[in-house]
Amino acid sequence: MLRVERRVGPLGYLACGLGSLVSATVVGGWHAALAFLLAVALALLLYPGALLALRRRRFWLFTAILVVSSGLLLTDGGADWRTTGMSLYGLRVGVQMAFRAATILVAVSGILERVGVAQLAAMLERLGVEGLGFALGVALNSLPVIGETARNSLAALRLRGGFRRERAVAVRQLLLTVVTNSLRYGEQVVTAAEARAYSPDRAHPLPLPWSWVDGMLIGGITLAVLGLSLL
């Protein structure tokens, strides 16, 4: 199992996550439980960490409120607030919604766990967002510069008593300094890139690893989703 997991590339993980998402949205009624089982099976096989998302208390609290509300508020004829007591139909709809939500939560967590930032950028670049890889690289490299500028500017403003009076002016000065210094860093990057004759037209998109396991996964997931939607 581990050997297979090592061979799966970002496209394979994306296909599994998207497959779970699609199955959660296209199936109706109790088939939502089957979609959830598929998502859990894929998570156990390929991205077990995604199951930790199901431990979020906030998610379960909101879902429990929703299930109870559905039981109280929904009847066969749609919404009826005059209903007293729990309606079996409402509870059923609520539980089905909970299955759908849990499936989506596991699928999205799986994608976010296994597909890295650079790989997502590479996929988007292949979808037509040209230069995204380069811009993302600039963004990642400018993070420390932004942090340092913000820290220095904040310290300087504090030492001058900037936040004691006219706080709005101080905040504006801080923003102005951080943005200007970040752009000055950007100008250095432009000069360096142009000196190396970098051109977005000639740049290659970021590499995207691919293996036969990805192909098998994509095929298998497509069949599974088709099967679920035809049930």
């Binding site: 230069g131 380069f134 811009a135 993302l136 690289g137 600039v138 963004a139 990642l140 400018s142 993070l143 932004i146 951080v178 943005v179 970040s182 752009l183 860093y185 950007g186 100008e187 990057v189 432009v190 890139a193 977005p200």
Partner: peptide, 11 residues
Amino acid sequence: DLVYIGVFGAL
């Protein structure tokens, strides 16, 4: 343009 987009995206 790409550098500025990167910098403002980072901000």
